[in-house]
């Protein structure tokens, strides 16, 4: 048997190189931050895109990486939103950033507790449990009107300035910068997570839990960990919405929100972090257009899109995101390169 000698340096470069920043990625974020100055009149919708992108990023962590199909991710979104709104309303924590962190931690705690139910059983039981958890939370919020305002939503929330400096202005300028910065910071964190051995182990669990445990991975512990983290992300996304709107409502827990979120993520593509962000941009502008056309029948278009997306094939439809995928994952699988030509600048 002829053995090819490999250089450790080169092999290391190939593995570690996957996590390097691609120029397109840099461009992506430069463009994202440029919107602050380029489109000041669009800041309200851009704010919505920012928290929705964070919410979808959160779902991508558990669905795209760990393979957990959730139909109730809105549970953590709503929980984070109410936490942030209540903290502000009762002036428990006046500084929005600290309140945001607390809301994220609270949602994480909820994620940790409910993760034990999600671990059990098949995709079907997971769908049922996630759906059930969101329903239960909505019902709890509904019945405890003295705290949450019930069906009217939590009103009378006044937000204090961010870091004591920047007020939430009525045009949403500061709110947008705030959301974008939070999205970026949490994106950086997620990027580190998915490129780490821990993140890789999640992908291995999605691919084959049997083998994952056969190489010594504690599958349940990893799933609990990522579910808890993702719940925190969703909670922060909800808190951003509550803070920028100074309002929280039962609709934040709705099944439709969880289902829409799935759509957002699959539009952009799962499993490479940018899918949720791209999906959020497309979804929001589409929503803006279609909802104005026929506000009442918006669900019909969502449904049609979902059906078409599946029938035609998600890969084929989201094929247009391939260049974006490559910027997160530098290797083009389809192009097999002969050895020796691959040492360029890694």
């Amino acid at each position: 048997m002829l053995l090819a000698r490999l250089s450790q340096e080169e092999v290391t470069g190939r593995l570690v190189g996957r996590a390097h920043w691609h120029p397109l990625e840099v461009l992506f974020w430069v463009a994202a931050f440029a919107t602050i100055w380029l489109f000041p009149s669009k800041h309200l919708i851009l704010t919505e895109i920012a928290w929705l992108a964070l919410f979808a990023l959160s779902l991508d962590l558990i669905l795209g990486y760990a393979g957990i199909v959730s139909l109730g991710h809105a549970a953590f979104f709503g929980f984070g939103a109410y936490t942030a709104a209540l903290l502000a309303k009762h002036e428990i924590i006046n500084e929005p950033v600290i309140a945001l962190v607390v809301a994220g931690l609270a949602a994480s705690a909820l994620g940790f507790v409910t993760s034990f139910l999600v671990l059990r059983g098949t995709d079907l039981t997971r769908i049922m449990v996630t759906l059930g958890v969101a329903f239960v939370l909505r019902e709890i919020a509904n019945q405890n009107g003295w705290l949450t305002g019930g069906a009217d939503g939590l009103q009378g929330v006044t937000m204090k300035p961010i870091l004591g400096q920047f007020r939430f202005d009525m045009f949403g300028h500061n709110g947008y910068v705030y959301c974008l910065v939070v999205l970026f910071v949490l994106f950086l964190l997620a990027r580190r997570i998915v490129n780490s051995p821990f993140g890789l182990s999640l992908q291995s669990i999605r691919n084959n839990p049997l083998r994952a445990s056969a190489i010594g991975i504690n599958v349940n512990a990893r799933l609990i960990a990522i579910y808890t983290i993702a719940a925190g992300y969703a909670g922060i996304a909800g808190a951003l919405l509550a803070q920028t709107q100074a309002f929280a409502s039962l609709a934040y827990f709705d099944f439709e929100r969880s289902a829409d979120l799935l759509l957002v993520l699959v539009i952009g593509g799962t499993g490479y972090l940018y899918g949720g962000i791209i999906g959020a941009v497309v979804f929001k502008f589409m929503h803006d257009y279609l909802a104005v056309l026929t506000p009442q029948y918006w669900p019909f278009w969502i449904g049609l899109l979902l059906v078409v997306l599946v029938m035609v094939g998600r890969e084929r439809i989201t094929g247009w995101t391939a260049p974006f995928r490559r910027m997160a994952d530098r290797l083009d699988w389809r192009r097999l390169r002969p050895r020796g030509e691959t040492t360029e600048g890694r």
Binding site: L71, L262, P299, L304, L306, V307, M311
Partner: peptide, 13 residues
């Protein structure tokens, strides 16, 4: 899941 949710939404609307 996506496909059947899509059907649900369409039927509802």
């Amino acid at each position: 899941v996506l496909f059947t949710i899509g059907l649900v939404f369409m039927s509802v609307a």
